[in-house]
């Protein structure tokens, strides 16, 4: 009954989150608004565009009841511009969408409208990798040039992974490594490694601190620390 997974979201769970992102569809059939558990969906009147969560858009697409409009940042020129920026700005955080201002419950991805047709074109949203892959697989006929998009996505991913690896050099156990700018899937990929290294470093640091304190005490007592002391510590 208990969940057998270790802490931290797994890639399928990230994809599940990503499917809550809003995307713009062009319906081919009428559909009234439905009272869903997550709120009422807008009524669909072809050819008026509507914003729907990705899972619903995919369902409609699969039944050929709608076409999905790829978000502006997922077009070859926009991707090429972002790629250019990422490859020149070394290890700098890529441009990201600002979060919605504070409210009672601030909105955050996947509920920000960052992948609809009127989203900004010069910034990647948090779920860019997952969303791009899902759309390319399920709705490649809605892209003008799916192969170019695919190629640019792959380049972008490699450049960003390289940037992330550069960040590894500034690892330490105490503080906090800034991951601002990395997407959900990239965080999930780096989680085991980065989390493991930081926890490991912290434990080494703690052990060193403790043995350092031990030395201090020994000196205070006037007894130099000997190899026996270490043996005792090991026994405990």
């Amino acid at each position: 009954m208990a969940l057998p997974l270790p802490p931290g979201l797994t890639p399928p769970e990230i994809a599940f989150l990503c499917e809550m992102e809003l995307v713009t569809v062009i319906p081919r059939q009428r559909l009234e608004g439905l009272d869903l558990l997550g709120g009422r969906t807008p009524p669909l009147h072809p050819p008026q565009r509507a914003n729907l969560p990705l899972w619903l858009a995919l369902l409609l697409k699969r039944q050929r009841r709608a076409n999905i409009l790829p978000p502006p940042w997922l077009s070859p020129p926009a991707l090429a511009a972002i790629l250019e920026l990422e490859s020149t700005a070394h290890a700098a955080a890529p441009p990201r969408l600002p979060l919605a201002p504070p409210g009672i419950l601030p909105i955050s991805p996947p509920f920000l409208p960052s992948s609809t047709a009127d989203a900004p074109r010069d910034a990647l949203p948090y779920h860019w990798l997952e969303l791009g892959e899902i759309l390319l697989e399920a709705a490649s006929d809605d892209f003008e040039d799916p192969d170019a998009v695919r190629r640019l996505m792959r380049d972008l991913r490699e450049v960003r992974m390289a940037n992330m690896r550069k960040g590894v050099e500034v690892f330490d156990a105490q503080g906090g490594l800034s991951m601002t700018g990395f997407g959900g899937m990239e965080v999930a990929e780096g989680r085991a490694f980065i989390g493991g290294v930081i926890d490991g470093l912290r434990k080494i640091g703690a052990a060193r601190e403790r043995s350092g304190d031990g030395d201090q005490d020994d000196q205070d007592n006037g007894f130099p620390s000997t190899a026996d002391d270490y043996d005792d510590e090991m026994d405990m």
Binding site: L99, Q174, G175, G176, L177, V187
Partner: peptide, 16 residues
């Protein structure tokens, strides 16, 4: 630790 840092809206970090 003596580490302190600022977090602004939208910042993603790895922290204890």
């Amino acid at each position: 630790t003596d580490r302190a840092f600022e977090m602004k809206r939208g910042d993603v970090r790895v922290v204890r």
